[in-house]
Design a protein around this nucleic acid. Structure first.
Lengths: 186, 186
DNA sequence: GTCTATAACATGATAGAC
DNA sequence: GTCTATCATGTTATAGAC
C-alpha cells in the first residue's frame, strides 16, 4: 500500500493504474483483490486516510518542540522547502492531488479527504492552543497554515521554484503575529 | 474546447476521456483530431493556456476598481466564496487540479501551467503596484493571494465549506497591511 | 473536408487453476 | 488461500467511407 500512496500522490487517482501499483509493489495482481475486495476505490480510500493521518506527525515534529509559535511556523515551512528541493518537486501534499480530482466526482473518496483535513485542523488547533492562543484563534491559524502550505505546493511544483513556499511561511507568520496580539492574555 | 475546459477542471486531465469531451461538445469524434492533431496533449495544453489566461481578468474586475488594496483583496476573496456556493463547490481554480496531476508526469503540460501562474503573478504585481506598493512588495502580495486562493480551494472543495476561503482572505489582508506599512512612502 | 467505424492498447475486475 | 490467465469495457488514435 506504500507503493499506492507514492503513485497516487505523483500521478493522481485516475492517472494511476492498479497494474502499475502491484508491479511497483512487487505483488501479484490477484492478491490486491484479496486484501482490497472493494477494488481501486477501497485502496484509494485507505491510502488517503493512512498517508493523510501520518502527516499529523509534522505538527508534533515542528510546532510542538518550538520555543514559540512564530519559530515553529518558520521551521514548518522551512521543512516544506527542504522537501521540495530534496525530492525535485515531486513530493508535496500526500492527498491534495487526489482531493481536487475526487472533490466533485467520487463522494466516498471526497469524504475521506475531508476527514483527513478535518483531523489536520483539529490537531493543529490543539497544538497551537498550547502556546496560549484561544481556541478560535488557534483554529484560524491552523487553517491559514494549511491554506498557505497547499497553495504553495501547487505553485512550487508547477513553477519548480521554492519562492512561493517562502512567501507562504511569511504570510502565516504575519497572521500568527496578528492573532497573538489580539488574543493572548498579556 | 469550452467543454474540455469544464471537464478537465472537474475530472482532471487523466480522468477526462476524449469521447466524453466530444460528446459533451456535441461534436463528432474525428473533428477533434482535425483541430488538434496533437491529440489529447495538445487539447490539454490549449485548455490550460486559454482558461488560465482568462482568469487574469479577475484582477481587473476586483482589484483595479477598488478604493484601496485591502478592500480590493476583500472583494476578490468574497467572489471566491460566492463562486464556490453558486456552483456547489465544483468550480475552483481552472487549472489547479491539472497542475498537480501533471507537475511530475508531463513536462509540456507542466510548462503550460507554469506559464499561466507566471502570467498571473506578473499581472497581479503590476495591478497591486498601482496602489503605491514597491515592485517586490507587490509581487510578494500577489503570490500570497494566489497561495491562499489555491489552498483554500483545496480545503473548501474537499470540506464543502467556505470557512477556509474566508480565512484565506483575512490572511492576505494581514500581509497587505504589513507590506503597506513597510514599503509605502508616507 | 466531415465524420463513422475500427484498430491497438490499457484499464478494472474475476474466474478458476494450482 | 495464491496467483495466473482472461473478460468486458473504455481509452487514444487512425483509417477510410461519404
Amino acid at each position: 500500500m506504500a507503493a499506492g500512496a507514492e503513485l497516487f500522490r505523483r500521478n493522481g487517482y485516475a492517472g494511476t493504474g492498479l497494474k502499475q501499483i502491484v508491479s511497483e509493489a512487487g505483488a501479484p495482481f490477484g492478491s490486491l483483490y484479496h486484501f482490497f475486495p472493494g477494488g481501486k476505490e477501497q485502496l484509494g480510500e485507505e491510502v488517503i486516510r493512512t498517508s493523510g493521518l501520518a502527516y499529523i506527525a509534522l505538527f508534533d515534529l515542528f510546532i510542538v518542540p518550538a520555543d514559540d509559535v512564530v519559530s515553529g511556523i518558520e521551521a514548518f515551512f522551512a521543512a516544506g522547502i527542504a522537501t521540495l528541493e530534496a525530492t525535485d518537486y515531486v513530493e508535496g501534499c500526500p492527498i491534495a492531488t487526489v482531493a481536487l480530482e475526487v472533490a466533485s466526482t467520487n463522494e466516498p473518496l471526497r469524504k475521506a479527504t475531508a476527514d483527513v483535513f478535518t483531523a489536520w485542523i483539529d490537531a493543529g488547533t490543539e497544538r497551537f492552543a498550547r502556546f496560549g492562543l484561544g481556541r478560535e484563534a488557534a483554529r484560524t491559524l491552523t487553517i491559514t497554515a494549511v491554506n498557505n502550505l497547499e497553495g504553495a505546493f501547487v505553485l512550487c511544483r508547477s513553477l519548480r521554484d521554492t519562492e512561493a513556499m517562502a512567501v507562504a511561511g511569511a504570510a502565516t507568520v504575519d497572521v500568527a503575529r496578528r492573532l497573538l496580539q489580539e488574543h493572548t492574555e498579556l
